[in-house]
């Protein structure tokens, strides 16, 4: 029983990690091509057909570069920081369901790495750990740009974590469960949380942009003032790990947004078509992937369309707009549930 669990979950984990790493490589490629499209350029198109092998070339190049650790840096922490970042980015995916269950090799396999009943808390706990990677890298580099990048980033991430946590409360009120599978199952038919929780969706989306340090909230690595921000003093694979973690975070938060608000793997009224169970399962996974890809494209689109915030604007938005909005959302949701359900 336990061995079977370990074997199936190891296979699932390997597949998921491969998908995420490939996803990271190709979302970097997509980002470069889409930004080129938006800025009326061509973008990478030399390595392989239409530049499709560019990510592999980039990784190889970074792997073969010299790993420079500044003489004044605190070396153990300098090495540890990118590891924390990538650890958090890869582990968050564990509780996200990418399908209901699939019947293969005469057993039902759940399409989720771990269905724990505290799914959302697990995600929030791990994303909070992400601050450590960035803050420690900024401090340990012993570089002024890095320090300011790390400081800004930690202040920004903890500020937006509040509104992120609060906007999730609305979703929990709708469902009455912390398990992500329950939340997806609750969003059958048209009852996606984006329709039932529009304010919660907007606050969560903005908080997700800030948490992943994506534009318009990419203050920690604002190039004109802070060079590379917290990863100024990183090179070779350690830099690659930060880069990887940033894009993996983007993918993972897309999956979380899709799960919480866009119906997860639910394809509206799929059960009424009378398809064979295997096809239904595969279609659900396919639906999930399509939604996540759309979300990633949205992330990229926003980055290349909206200018960066100033730091005081960012903090004002986080504390004086998002926080009251998310709180109001909770009270209104609870009131509406009380009125319509009793």
């Amino acid at each position: 029983m336990i061995t079977e669990l370990i074997i199936t979950s190891t296979i699932k984990i390997t597949l998921v990690i491969i998908v995420i790493l490939t996803g990271v490589a190709y979302s970097v490629y997509a980002e470069r091509r889409i930004s080129a499209l938006i800025q009326n350029r061509i973008g990478p198109n030399r390595v392989g057909p239409a530049g499709l092998l560019q990510p592999i070339a980039d990784v190889l190049k970074l792997l073969l570069k010299e790993d420079i650790v500044p003489a004044k840096a605190t070396k153990p922490i300098h090495t540890l920081a990118p590891m924390i970042s990538i650890f958090v980015a890869l582990c968050t995916i564990a509780v996200v369901p990418f399908g209901d269950s699939i019947h293969l090799f005469s057993r039902d396999i759940r399409l989720q790495i771990a269905d724990v009943n505290i799914g959302i808390l697990y995600i929030l706990a791990l994303t909070s750990l992400g601050v450590y990677g960035i803050t420690l890298s900024g401090w340990s580099s012993n570089n002024k740009y890095s320090l300011f990048g790390g400081l800004r980033s930690s202040a920004q991430m903890i500020s937006y974590e509040l509104s992120m946590g609060l906007s999730v409360v609305g979703v929990i009120l709708m469902t009455g469960s912390l398990s992500l599978q329950d939340i997806v199952l609750h969003q059958f038919g048209w009852k996606w949380n984006i329709i039932l929780q529009p304010i919660g969706f907007i606050t969560f989306l903005v908080a997700a942009f800030a948490e992943t340090n994506r534009a318009p909230f990419d203050l920690p690595e604002a190039e004109p003032e802070l060079v590379g921000g917290y990863h100024t003093e990183y090179s070779s694979m350690k830099f690659a790990l930060f880069f990887l973690a940033e894009y993996a975070n983007m993918i993972v938060s897309s999956t979380v947004i899709v799960t919480l608000f866009l119906g997860g793997w639910q394809f509206p009224y799929l059960q009424t078509f009378g398809l064979p169970p295997l096809v239904v399962s595969l279609l659900q996974v396919f639906t999930f992937v399509i939604k996540v890809v759309a979300m990633i494209v949205f992330f990229i689109w926003v980055r290349w369309s909206i200018p960066r915030f100033r730091y005081d604007q960012l903090m004002n938005l986080g504390w004086k707009v998002m926080l009251p909005l998310a709180l109001a959302n909770i009270v209104i949701t609870a009131l509406l549930i009380a009125i319509f359900r009793s």
Partner: peptide, 25 residues
């Protein structure tokens, strides 16, 4: 038992991080 897969994933992630850092070294 629900948490065993999470533990395995964490081990995978740690292994990945260590391999990447030391490979480039």
């Amino acid at each position: 038992n629900n948490y065993i897969p999470i533990l395995i994933l964490m081990l995978f992630a740690i292994a990945f991080a260590i391999v990447c850092v030391f490979l480039s070294k």
